[in-house]
Amino acid sequence: MRVWEGVWEGHRGKTLGVLAGSALGLIYLFFGLWRMLIFALIVYTGYYIGKKMDRGEPVFPAEDTWRWLMDKWRLFR
């Protein structure tokens, strides 16, 4: 039981992300094609978002993405 408490305290975002990804993946598993690949992708996405939350980073860096897009589009002006 102490192992789970340590995991929860140290990696709360990753744990929630994997649980949410697993739940959504299980729902998809019953209804979709390419079940294993999509399930793995959903679980990994949950893990990735949880890891970002654990590190205190923004889940989607909108400002950096916007700056990158603007730099790319300047080439066409």
Rank of each mutant, 00 (worst) to 15 (best):
M1I: 11
M1E: 13
R2G: 14
R2P: 09
W4G: 03
E5A: 14
E5F: 13
G6V: 02
R12E: 08
G13E: 05
G13K: 01
K14Q: 11
G17S: 03
G17T: 09
V18H: 00
V18I: 13
L19W: 03
G21A: 05
S22A: 12
A23Y: 12
A23Q: 06
L24F: 12
G25N: 06
G25A: 03
G25M: 01
G25T: 03
L26D: 08
L26K: 04
L26C: 11
F31V: 15
F31P: 02
G32F: 10
L33A: 13
L33V: 12
R35V: 10
R35H: 11
R35F: 15
M36V: 12
M36S: 13
F39A: 05
I42S: 07
V43G: 08
Y44A: 12
T45L: 01
T45D: 11
T45V: 06
T45I: 07
Y47K: 09
K51N: 11
K51W: 02
K52C: 03
K52E: 08
M53P: 02
R55T: 00
F60E: 00
F60L: 12
F60D: 01
A62Y: 12
E63I: 04
D64Y: 03
T65E: 14
R67S: 11
W68D: 11
W68N: 11
W68I: 13
L69V: 13
M70C: 05
K72G: 13
W73P: 02
R74V: 00
L75V: 09
F76D: 09
F76L: 05
F76K: 09
F76I: 06
R77W: 06
R77V: 07
